[in-house]
Nucleic acid binder design. Structure first.
Length: 280
DNA sequence: CCAAGGCCTGAATG
DNA sequence: ACATTCAGGCCTT
């Protein structure tokens, strides 16, 4: 019998969903918006703000969810091997900026850019005798100049970051609303943000806005589907268009169900480990 | 609706 | 050494 309450923090943090985490001794320390979290190996959280978000989504019924996506040998072996891998519930604004930066980039560089953004625009605080920089608030980035943002190494994405921050600050994007509405509406609204396309929108929806039916389709996931599910999802072209993305997503939901986001995370983790990619 | 090209940047490749 | 390619996309034409 599998222990569905198990948590594997190392695998969870090293699965491409978060970037501002570091391990010290037996603890992981990470920036989550205006908060710093310290998590031990059992998933117990201590936080700078003393507020404890359900960062590890302990309220999800993992047994029901994982059983619901266990459709074949491939996904089953990924779940068995990486049991304890969680989807995190991140701060939405930080998640938004992180994945705008992620486009056309890689994990190492994303991490460096985000660290510079925190150091340049975030508040410096001390927690557990260590120095941290919080993630900047939307207001700060909204009023920062494009050039200041560019100095963090984000290149052409600087104006996207600026615009996105303004939309959040002026409540054209309301995360509380997005958390409570349907996936399709949330996706449509998120896609209005410059620099946010299909893939980035799905990452933000899955990792910070409680949309477990989001299934981010990046180059890696496309490759994974081609490799393991060639007959199921029959992908033809290399560059995936808006319409193809949508149709593929519909097929995925039909196959894995409405918790497909978890399936994505397990498949992604499995394949990336096979290629021994460096994480954090 | 689709295909092609440009885009900051740094690491990898030739 | 130096040029070219490419990376976990998005946007415009």
């Amino acid at each position: 019998m599998q222990d569905f309450s198990k948590i594997n923090l190392d695998n969870t943090i090293n699965s491409g969903q978060v970037f501002l985490w570091q391990k010290e001794e037996k603890y992981w320390f990470g920036v989550n918006g205006q908060n710093i979290l310290k998590i031990n190996e059992f998933g117990k959280i201590k936080s700078y703000s003393n507020q404890k978000p359900d960062y590890l989504r302990n309220q999800d019924n993992l047994e029901i969810i994982l059983k619901s996506i266990s459709k074949d040998k491939i996904i089953n072996s990924a779940i068995t091997k990486y049991l304890g891998l969680r989807i995190l519930r991140q701060d939405p604004f930080q998640c938004l900026i992180s994945f705008i930066i992620s486009s056309n980039s890689n994990i190492q560089k994303i991490k460096i850019c985000l660290e510079k953004i925190c150091k340049t625009f975030g508040e410096k605080i001390f927690f557990e005798n260590k120095e941290f920089y919080l993630f900047p608030e939307p207001k700060t980035l909204a009023f920062a100049s494009i050039n200041e943002i560019k100095k963090c190494g984000v290149g052409y994405r600087a104006k996207f970051i600026s615009e996105a921050s303004k939309m959040v600050y002026y409540k054209k994007i309301n995360f509380e609303y997005l958390k409570n509405c349907e996936y399709s509406e949330a996706k449509e609204l998120m896609s209005q943000i410059p620099g946010v396309g299909n893939k980035v929108a799905d990452c933000i929806l899955l990792f910070s806005l409680d949309k477990l039916e989001a299934f981010p389709l990046d180059r890696w996931m496309i490759r994974i589907l081609e490799k393991y599910y060639p007959q199921l999802f029959e992908l033809s072209t290399k560059t995936i268009t808006q319409r193809q993305y949508q149709k593929l997503h519909e097929k995925i939901i039909k196959y894995f169900g409405t918790n497909a986001g978890y399936a994505q995370q397990f498949l992604f983790k499995m394949e990336r480990e096979n290629y021994k990619k460096n994480w954090l």
